[in-house]
C-alpha cells in the first residue's frame, strides 16, 4: 500500500509516494539516493542510521517514512555549510575520530543532537545530581553516545573529537 509523503531532507523539499512499510532510512537511501545514514543492524541497536528529525537525533531504521510527513530531516551530509564542515565534523577529522568510517555519519549526527540536549540541560544516567548543570566530561560523553557503536573501536578519538566540539 502506498501513501504520499512530503518532507525536507538536508534543506530540500521532496514529495514522494512510498510503500507504507518503508523506513525513513530506506526512503533516504533507496528513494532519495542519500547514502549518508548507514544501515548497520537495521534493528535499532547500532546507531549507524542516526539522523536529526526536527533537530533531534533519532534512529532512521525504526521510523516509518509515512509517519514523518512534514518532518525536517538532517543527515550528516546536510550538516555542511557550503564547503565548510560542521564543527563536529571538523573535530572528527582533526582527532581522527574514525577508522573505517561506516559508523561516522551516525556518530556525527548523534553528537550534534547530544550537544543540543546538553545545552538544554538534559541530565544523563551518569549525572549524579539531576538538577545540576551538566559538566560534559568523558563519562558523560561515553554515556550519552552509548547508542552509537563503532566496531573499529575508535571510541577514544571520538570522545576527544566531541570534547573539542563541545568547547567550540
Amino acid at each position: 500500500m502506498e501513501a504520499d509523503l512530503t518532507w525536507r531532507v538536508d534543506g530540500v523539499e521532496h514529495t514522494l509516494a512510498v510503500d507504507t512499510r518503508t523506513t525513513v532510512l530506506d526512503a533516504l537511501r533507496d528513494r532519495l539516493g542519500n547514502t549518508s545514514p548507514k544501515k548497520g543492524c537495521d534493528h535499532g541497536q547500532c546507531g549507524a542510521c542516526t539522523v536529526l528529525v526536527d533537530g533531534r537525533r533519532q534512529l532512521s531504521c525504526l521510523g516509518l517514512a509515512v509517519a514523518h510527513d512534514g518532518s525536517e530531516i538532517t543527515t550528516a551530509a546536510g550538516l555542511v555549510d557550503g564547503d565548510e564542515l560542521h564543527p563536529v565534523q571538523q573535530a572528527f577529522v582533526d582527532h581522527d575520530g574514525l577508522q573505517c568510517g561506516y559508523c561516522t555519519p551516525g556518530q556525527v549526527c548523534s553528537a550534534v543532537g547530544m550537544l543540543d540536549e546538553v545545552k538544554a540541560g538534559h541530565p544523563s544516567a551518569v549525572s549524579d545530581d539531576l538538577e545540576a548543570d551538566v559538566e560534559l566530561d568523558e563519562d558523560e560523553i561515553r554515556e550519552r553516545m552509548s547508542g552509537n557503536l563503532c566496531r573499529c573501536g575508535a571510541y577514544s578519538n571520538i570522545v576527544a573529537a566531541i570534547e573539542e566540539a563541545a568547547r567550540a
Binding site: G44, G47, T50, R56, S110, G113, P123, A125, S127, L130
Partner: peptide, 18 residues
Amino acid sequence: PVLSHALLAGASGQLRNV
C-alpha cells in the same frame, strides 16, 4: 528523581527521543 533515573538508564539518547 527515581523516574528520571529509570528513564535515563533505559535505551539510548536516540531511542528516548522517540
